[in-house]
């Protein structure tokens, strides 16, 4: 990315942090790991990676960091969530742990682990009209599905009709992992059309 790159944080408590950093490096986007409120305050945008959503939720509470993330999202921080990150951005979830919380922000209902166990995880390619070009390489790993997109815009669906990507303002959540599929176009699109314009 030429010129003034935004500084993108990757929430680095648990999950596939490294893969997101590799995509951002490949795109030439400045990035850093975010593990606490001070680091969060320094970034222009945040990626919530794949991982175990219930664990990321617990760790943000244990380390007294959850309220800062929620406040940043409410304050308009651009956020991209993949898989667990989509779950954590959803206002409502089903199939979660009894005490599982989310940060919220997307007016959607997401079903956790909606495809079954790991033997049902799969790779495919999906059309994302907002991004255009060839179909997007995507990995669905014990992935969630958006059961009700509420007032959010649907940006990705499977051929079967299931909603696997939504956008609402500065928040983008997808069920799948472009970052483990050698696929950089989703991150590139998010940085160019969501993050950079938010910098004014």
């Amino acid at each position: 990315m030429a010129g003034n790159s935004p500084l993108v944080g990757v929430l680095a408590l648990q999950g596939d942090v490294r893969e997101h950093e590799e995509v951002l490096s490949e795109l030439g986007v400045l990035h850093r790991q975010v593990r606490n409120a001070e680091q969060l305050a320094e970034v222009d945008a945040l990626i919530i990676p794949g991982g175990e959503s219930s664990v990321i939720d617990k760790l943000t509470r244990i380390f007294g960091f959850r309220d800062d993330i929620v406040a940043a999202i409410r304050g308009g921080l651009p956020v991209l969530g993949t898989c667990a990150g989509l779950i954590l951005l959803a206002d409502r979830i089903t199939g979660g742990l009894d005490d599982q919380q989310t940060f919220g922000g997307l007016d959607v209902t997401v079903e956790r682990n909606a495809f079954g166990s790991q033997v049902d995880s799969f790779e495919t390619s999906i059309d994302m009209p907002a991004i255009g070009g060839a179909a997007i390489q995507s990995s669905f790993i014990r992935a969630p599905i958006v059961r009700d997109a509420g007032s959010a815009e649907v940006i990705a669906t499977l051929p079967s009709g299931e909603i696997v990507g939504v956008r609402q303002g500065n928040l983008v959540g997808i069920s799948f992992h472009p970052e483990v599929s050698n696929e950089t176009r989703v991150h590139d699109w998010w940085v160019r059309t969501v993050v950079v314009p938010s910098l004014g």
Partner: peptide
């Protein structure tokens, strides 16, 4: 990719 992908999600 799908097999090692789940392990990626367990990191940390």
């Amino acid at each position: 990719r799908i097999k090692s992908g789940l392990a990626d999600m367990l990191k940390g």
